[in-house]
């Protein structure tokens, strides 16, 4: 794995208009092709941090300290795929539009590139013939479109804000596999925000645990999860309700 950082954040502080500090002295760096999981409960500031990287802070919240140094473009995937798509525009057209503006190709080439992306994301090839509106697709398919739009920007960093939280487990698994595969193929770095430790563990090689606007612990995924140093991390790990492992299929022996 390359070691040039594509993103460095030092002492990032975000403050609301009411003087309330929402994110305090957050620092981390992200290497090329690396994936970092930002985990924490609601109100921990993990989504705000992500928005600060993209430069899309909600109104009334300002960066009051720290620096964000980014050596690559970033693109974002949101939690609610339907909310991130224009309901009145067919999906291939939406993706092609992004390709057209970001990659400066001709209209025709943009459409071809868009279809290529959608194919990579495992969307049905029938879209080639008949374009569809977001309302005609399932939640999982919509999320694939959103990811395609993000990748159309050829980002060096993909920012994911709870991209699988609104989806069913089986769809979540497919999306996780797709994103993991694409990351290996395209080599982008990724920040993956989630409240689900197991999802973060599956997607990311490093984890940063956030609590009330601060990073309380960060390190490699395995070390954070196996030897947590911070009691809050420990508490989060203890709160995970495990599902026992399935017996291998066909092992019909009963030992009740």
């Amino acid at each position: 794995m390359a070691t040039t950082p594509v993103l460095e954040i030092e002492d990032l502080t975000l403050t609301a208009k009411t003087q309330e500090v929402l994110v305090k002295d957050v620092s981390f760096s992200l290497n090329q092709g690396e994936s970092l999981g930002l985990v924490g409960e609601s109100g921990s500031g993990k989504s705000l941090t992500l928005r600060a990287v993209l430069g899309l802070l909600p109104r009334g919240i300002e960066q009051t300290g720290g620096v964000i140094r980014s050596a690559a473009d970033s693109a974002m995937v949101f939690q609610d795929p339907r909310g991130a798509l224009d309901p009145l525009c067919p999906v291939v057209k939406q993706v092609a539009e992004v390709v057209y503006y970001r990659q400066r190709l001709s209209r025709k080439a943009s459409r071809a590139a868009a279809l290529e992306l959608l194919h990579m994301l495992g969307l049905p090839d029938s879209l080639r013939k008949t374009d569809r509106y977001p309302g005609q697709l399932s939640g999982g398919q919509c999320q694939r479109i959103v990811i395609a739009m993000a990748l159309a920007c050829k980002p060096g960093i993909l920012l994911c804000d709870e991209p699988t939280t609104a989806l069913d487990v089986t769809v979540q698994k497919q999306i996780m596999e797709t994103v993991g595969r694409l990351q290996q193929e395209l080599g982008f770095a990724m920040i993956f925000v989630t409240h689900n430790l197991a999802v973060a563990a599956a997607m990311c090689s490093r984890l940063a645990v956030m609590k009330k606007g601060e990073i309380v612990e960060q390190g490699s995924t395995l070390s954070v999860l196996q030897e947590p140093q911070n009691p809050y991390t420990q508490m989060l790990i203890n709160s995970v309700l495990p599902v026992p492992e399935l017996a291998p299929e066909g092992s019909g022996v009963l030992w009740t």
């Binding site: 979540q172 599956a202 196996q226």
Partner: peptide, 13 residues
């Protein structure tokens, strides 16, 4: 079985 195997597992588990 499909549902159960789709659940992401914690590595420590």
């Amino acid at each position: 079985r499909e549902l159960l195997s789709a659940v992401p597992q914690m590595p420590t588990m």
